[in-house]
Design a protein around this nucleic acid. Structure first.
Lengths: 342, 342
DNA sequence: TTGCGATATCTTTAATAGTAACCATTGCTT
DNA sequence: AAGCAATGGTTACTATTAAAGATATCGCAA
């Protein structure tokens, strides 16, 4: 391997001078710069990133800490879009991305400790916030640059990027109410995720504002998997009084709901109307196309990365909590036949 | 930051001894080990990974080199599953994963050079092989541990994990032929990817073996996007003699095909039968459920990571090319109504 | 023309955190 | 008493950079 010393020797200068050439230091003459650069090219020199990181105490690397278990996440287009947003921005800013997964709960803290306290990364993006995330405490304790995608109860001093999920669910629910629905159900996600809470709260507020009753059996919790949606329907459609409209926490779950309703012989949107969240690429290709709240997934990731890098650069950050706007995309799954005819 | 020297001083031993305790060196007494470990816990010591990497010339990190542009990839469930396979195995083996993307063609080589020649990673997983990939030459030149997911023409001395895509397409096509179809079309992917070539070849062989004609206008190239499938249908269904069966390169494209056919008023499978590839989670939730060749996506990623780590460990590797078995999953999209009744 | 300080340019030295090869000490056996 | 495990310390090294020091060059006044 060719090192900075080899270049220095070959060019007849000191290693420091080569180092300055590499980092475009102003106090190097054009002649020397050219000479050194030529030799670097000839000898195929590439700076050893580890040595550089050791001395500069900076790795130019960010970590994405994946929640555990990660299966659900990878099953969802949502994650791909988020990742794309993060990666695009961090690549542009000259940062590498480390994908960190944990296999067990204690391993999660250990992984973070290894990466963060071992100075392997300059910052961390946390995904899928739980209602009380111990990782956030750990990272805050060490005052380590962290951005949370989502929201965590009881942590107000952490940088975060999120949607207004409460309002998003309000809008989705209100849309169904405007379409004339009075019995509206909610297919939720894992109960320990704040996103489940927030969307549920918005659903409840919309129902309350319209003076509509919310029945306990119209709310079903599950995972971000199609199977959850499918199972929710087996249960909900067996009720004596079943809802005529459904708000579903995630498009993939929505696909499962659609399949369940289909098999049970219900027609969407004529028998049951449907609105879900995230607006993944395939939701407009469902039969019927699914109405969905676009939460700006790419933007969410892009902004998180941007915010994190700003924090690392120690720029002044005035807003610790950034909200990405959402937008309800109305499609066939929530437009009743009567409206369609008009 | 607490270093190995701080621990050494606090424990009254030399830095080497602490280093030995950390790496479970056998020649350290139990008493010393315990004493040092206790102090490490108390002081919250975590080894600096950069310093370790510098001296050991090993980073315990793998890079996934994403193809450019990466948009398509992130839009596909396929990628998520692949990533999950890679990540699961590499995490188990104690390796971190670096996600590397390039923004331009020349940047691609630069990124590889920076990571590989700069000794930032121990190995590289290449995705989405093109027919003649210059990156492979670059990596081979430096004898750098690399595993290719897919196949690249003219590179036989590279480790790779792939499917038998030719046979997979043969099986898919033959399935349609057995169902009684004689006019079968092929909706392909980007022409510069080997996977497009291989699947096309299998399709052609199956048609030839059955003495069925292949028309040029029944073959359409595109991307791994739903829009490609949609556009292919606009074109193909406008032909004077249109196919009655379709082999589609990817499930996401299949979703687009389904939508296109739907809008044009064709029924699947009664008017047109459909088989596609990759068997993503949502293909069984399409309307109708899409027949798809399961290529063992998770396995593909898992095996690639495993192979790469073996190569890094300099284990003897007897097979340089591993083939993950495929399996045709027959669903409603390719079972004609007449068969359904029986 | 010469001498001086200012400036530009480059070198030397020390530091980053850790590891490995080699060396040193101890206490026990033969 | 010599030899030998067992255990731990010393020293040198990894590739790079920052700070401080050294040298050369230049402009300008005497």
């Amino acid at each position: 391997m060719v090192t900075i010393k080899d270049i220095a020797k070959a060019a007849g200068v000191s290693p420091s001078t080569v180092s300055r050439v590499v980092s475009n230091h102003p106090r190097i003459s054009k002649a020397t710069t050219q000479k050194v650069k030529k030799i670097m090219d000839e000898m195929g020199y590439h700076p050893n990133i580890m040595a550089k990181s050791l001395v500069s105490k900076t790795t130019k690397t960010l970590a994405i800490m994946l929640p555990r278990p990660a299966e659900e996440l990878f099953q969802d287009f949502f994650f791909g879009e988020l990742l794309r947003g993060i990666l695009t921005q961090s690549t542009r800013a000259g940062y590498d991305m480390l994908l960190a997964a944990a296999t067990s709960p204690q391993d999660e803290s250990e992984t973070i400790a290894r990466l963060v306290l071992g100075r392997r990364v300059d910052g961390v993006i946390l995904l899928s916030a739980r209602t009380n995330d111990p990782l956030i405490d750990l990272l805050n304790q060490h005052d380590f640059p962290t951005v949370l995608i989502g929201r965590s109860d009881g942590h107000h001093n952490i940088l975060s990027v999120d949607n207004n999920n409460e309002q998003a669910a309000y809008d989705a629910t209100q849309h169904l109410i405007i379409q004339g629905h009075e019995r509206i159900g909610f297919v939720s996600g894992p109960p320990n995720l704040t996103v489940s809470h927030d969307r549920m709260a918005g659903y409840r507020r919309a129902m309350k504002d319209a003076s509509l009753p919310v029945r306990g059996e119209w709310i079903v919790e599950g995972e971000f998997l199609q199977q959850s949606g499918y199972r929710a329907m087996s249960f909900m459609m067996g009720l004596p009084e079943r809802p005529s409209g459904l708000v579903v926490i995630d498009d993939v779950v929505g696909f499962g709901v659609l399949r369940g309703l289909n098999e049970l012989g219900y027609s969407v949107p004529n028998d049951i109307s449907l609105v879900s969240f995230n607006n993944i690429a395939l939701s407009e290709l469902a039969t019927p196309p699914i109405s969905s709240v676009d939460i700006g997934t790419y933007q969410l990731g892009y902004t998180a990365s941007q915010l994190l890098i700003r924090r690392i650069m120690e720029e002044d950050i005035y807003q610790s909590r950034m909200i990405i706007p959402h937008r309800l995309i109305v499609r066939e799954s929530s437009i009743q036949a009567v409206n369609k005819r008009s």
